[in-house]
Amino acid sequence: MTLTWLGWLAGVLGLVAAGFGAVLLPRRRARAGGRATAWSTARSAIDIAAVSRDACPARVAEAEHLLARAESLAADRGGVAAAHQATEYARRADRLWRQAADA
């Protein structure tokens, strides 16, 4: 009788594990993908800001400060929220340098 229950138990555990797997695996994959995407965006924004800095004839202290903060956030390798924050800082810095260059 114990053997019989073992069979049911194994089957049910298999089904439950498969169900959890079916839900959790894509979710985890999507989360990892979202994180990678966010950091990819952040890094490209930082690189572009760096290019704008090099092209700007004058020094803009505020933009440099913002870029430094973005780079330190990127160095810490946080989550999606940190990546968005870093993107935001880098874009603001980029805008400041472009305005300085246009002026």
Partner: peptide, 14 residues
């Protein structure tokens, strides 16, 4: 035999 049939079917399905 039913529990083993059940478990086997689940295993194949998974």
């Amino acid at each position: 035999a039913l529990p083993w049939v059940f478990a086997g079917c689940v295993a194949v399905f998974v």
